[in-house]
Simulated scan of single mutants.
Amino acid sequence: MSTIKQFQVTFDCADPERVARFWCEVLGYVAPAPPEGFATWDAYNLSLPAERRNAGFVCSDPSGVGPRMYFQRVPEGKVAKNRVHLDVRVGTGLVGAERLATLEAECTRLVALGAIRQYVLLADEENESCITMQDIEGNEFCLD
C-alpha cells in the first residue's frame, strides 16, 4: 500500500527571487520572512559571497495545502518547451462564455505582472477552453 507524499515544485531560472515573487502573486502564495538578523532579503543576500547571492528562493501556500515551490538559479537559459507545466485552475466548474471571461480576466491580471499570453485553446467536444501563457522567464503555464 502506498502513502501520500508531499512534494515541491522546482523551477530552474536566472533570477529566483523575481520569479518566486511573480508566482506568489499568481497563486496567492507567500515568501518567507528574511532569515533572523536581517530586515530584508536584500540585506541577507548582500551578506553572502557573490556566487551564493540570490541562488534560490522559496514560496509556499499560506494555508499549507498546495505544494512548496522552490526556485533555483541555473547558468543556462530556457531553450525548449517545458516537459511539465502548471495549470492555474481559475475556471474550475465554469463553461462557455462565463469560463472564457474568467480566464481572460485572470490573463489580463497576469500580463500586468509580466506574464506573456501565448494563445487561447477554445472548447471542443472533450476539453474546456484554456489560455496558454509564459511566466516572466518564459516558463509555460495554462490558465485552466
Score class of each variant (00 low, 15 high):
Val19Cys: 12
Ala20Ser: 13
Ala20His: 03
Ala20Thr: 03
Ala20Met: 02
Arg21Gly: 08
Arg21Ala: 12
Arg21Cys: 13
Phe22Lys: 03
Phe22Val: 07
Phe22Trp: 01
Phe22Gly: 11
Trp23Lys: 07
Trp23Tyr: 13
Cys24Arg: 00
Val26Lys: 09
Val26Asp: 05
Val26Gln: 06
Leu27Arg: 04
Leu27Glu: 12
Leu27Ala: 11
Gly28Cys: 06
Gly28Val: 06
Gly28Phe: 02
Tyr29Ser: 10
Tyr29Arg: 02
Tyr29Lys: 01
Val30Leu: 00
Val30Glu: 06
Ala31Asn: 00
Ala31Cys: 01
Pro32Tyr: 01
Pro32Cys: 03
Ala33Lys: 09
Ala33Asn: 10
Ala33His: 07
Ala33Gly: 07
Ala33Val: 06
Ala33Trp: 01
Pro34Trp: 00
Pro34Phe: 00
Pro34Gly: 02
Pro34Gln: 02
Pro34Val: 00
Pro34Arg: 00
Glu36Ala: 14
Glu36Thr: 15
Glu36Tyr: 05
Gly37Asp: 08
Phe38Gly: 06
Phe38Pro: 00
Phe38Arg: 02
Ala39Phe: 00
Ala39Cys: 05
Ala39His: 01
Ala39Asn: 02
Ala39Arg: 03
Thr40Arg: 05
Thr40His: 03
Trp41Ala: 09
Trp41Lys: 04
Asp42Lys: 11
Asp42Phe: 09
Asp42His: 13
Ala43Met: 04
Ala43Lys: 08
Tyr44Cys: 08
Tyr44Asp: 06
Asn45Ser: 09
Asn45Met: 05
Leu46Glu: 14
Leu46Thr: 08
Leu46Gly: 15
Ser47Glu: 08
Ser47Gly: 15
Ser47Val: 13
Leu48Trp: 02
Leu48Tyr: 04
Leu48Asn: 09
Leu48Asp: 03
Pro49His: 06
Ala50Pro: 11
Glu51Arg: 14
Glu51Thr: 13
Glu51Tyr: 10
Arg52Ala: 15
Arg52Lys: 15
Arg52Asn: 15
Arg52Ser: 15
Arg53Asn: 08
Arg53Thr: 13
Asn54Ile: 03
Asn54Glu: 10
Ala55Asn: 13
Gly56Lys: 01
Gly56Glu: 04
Phe57Lys: 06
Phe57Asn: 06
Phe57Tyr: 15
Val58Ser: 12
Val58Cys: 09
Val58Met: 14
Val58Asp: 08
Cys59Pro: 00
Cys59Arg: 02
Ser60Met: 04
Ser60Gly: 14
Ser60Phe: 10
Ser60Thr: 13
Asp61Asn: 13
Asp61Ala: 12
Pro62Met: 05
Pro62Phe: 12
Ser63Leu: 11
Ser63Phe: 03
Ser63Gly: 15
Gly64Met: 08
Val65Ala: 14
Val65Asn: 10
Gly66Thr: 09
Gly66Ser: 09
Gly66Val: 11
Pro67Thr: 12
Pro67Val: 08
Pro67Met: 07
Pro67Arg: 04
Pro67Tyr: 04
Pro67Glu: 03
Arg68Trp: 02
Met69Asn: 03
Met69Gln: 04
Met69Leu: 12
Met69Lys: 05
Tyr70Asp: 11
Tyr70Arg: 10
Phe71Asn: 04
Phe71His: 05
Phe71Thr: 09
Gln72Gly: 15
Gln72Pro: 05
Gln72His: 14
Arg73His: 10
Arg73Ile: 06
Arg73Thr: 10
Val74Asp: 09
Val74Ser: 13
Val74Asn: 08
